[in-house]
């Protein structure tokens, strides 16, 4: 029996190599970016996206393939390997020149265009290769733009479920239900495939990459493309003027007893 269209979901998960979440950020010497000579890892929201794609595959059996995509310098390959080790099936790398700081990373609109180009290419490769679901981080923790997912959905003319804390795909009908985290509550939306879903923290807890999978991931081929191969241009439209730290907190003092506390409060004009 030939499986019906909805039985063959191909999921695309864009992943970004970003400064490790636990690293203390320091401003770069030129004041236009941050110091990038520090540990990098997969953007945490993207890690959640990879996890959710794998869980969706395990849970619904409706996913045929999970494709990880990274747009970034040579070292983004490490991030793709992590996605493969977690359980992605294949990986595509759009190589960009080494960026001196996160602010000189490709702009969200260009990233969205690049993702769209990969999706268009998948459609051209045949119905069984077409990507119909994108699960991606709601934002990257380095430049905090948070706009790529929305722009991508707009460019593709797809539905979007942003800030997802729960995702359900009905295999038979191709219906997608997304629970979204909104201010002070939850909102549930329903849509048909294709759709762009962006992840919130509570969507899933990423698994560790297991050694057997890390080994297998080492051997998997990562498709490497130049922007020109996809007919896209990643040149920036904006330039960063400056990056600055929040004002330093002035340290408090300790008081010995209540009397001293009251006196200090009076001095400060608080009581």
């Amino acid at each position: 029996m030939i499986p019906s269209r909805v039985n063959l979901i191909n999921v695309l998960v864009p992943v970004k190599r970003a400064i490790d979440y636990a690293v203390k950020i320091r401003i770069a010497k030129d004041g236009k970016g941050v110091d990038t000579t520090v540990k990098h890892s997969m953007n945490p929201f993207d890690e959640i996206a990879v996890e959710e794609a794998i869980r969706l595959k395990e849970r619904t059996k409706a996913v045929t393939s999970i494709i990880a995509l990274s747009i970034g310098p040579a070292k983004s390959v490490e991030t793709l390997r992590t996605a493969l080790a977690m359980g992605a099936d294949s990986a595509v790398h759009i190589v960009t020149p080494e960026a001196p700081s996160p602010s000189s990373n490709p702009e969200p609109v260009n990233v969205a265009a690049a993702i769209k180009a990969v999706i268009d290419r998948s459609k051209a490769a045949g119905a069984d290769k077409a990507i119909d679901l994108v699960i991606m981080g709601k934002q990257a923790i380095d430049d905090d733009s948070g706009s790529t997912g929305g722009m991508l959905a707009g460019m593709l003319g797809w539905g979007q479920g942003t800030f997802a804390s729960k995702l359900d795909v009905d295999k038979a009908s191709g219906k997608v239900e997304v629970t979204r985290e909104i201010d002070g509550g939850l909102s549930r939306i329903e849509s048909k495939l294709p759709i762009v879903v962006t992840t919130d923290l509570r969507l899933s807890e990423p698994r560790y990459a297991s050694l057997p999978n890390i080994m297998k991931a080492k051997k998997k081929k990562i498709e490497s493309l130049k922007p020109e191969d996809l007919g896209i241009d990643l040149s920036p439209r904006m330039s960063v003027l400056s990056v600055s730290e929040p004002p330093k907190r002035v340290g408090g003092g300790k008081v010995e007893n209540v009397d001293e506390l009251v006196q200090k409060l009076k001095e400060g004009g608080i009581v």
Binding site: Y21, A22, S41, P44, E47, Y208, L211
Partner: peptide
């Protein structure tokens, strides 16, 4: 990597995980 390959090929370990980022480093 050399160690991991050796341990797996010689069946000295059943399974294993390797921290991919600092958060995982701490949780392991």
């Amino acid at each position: 990597q050399g160690l991991l390959e050796n341990l797996m090929e010689n069946d000295l370990i059943l399974d294993g995980v390797l921290a991919q980022d600092t958060t995982q480093y701490h949780s392991l």
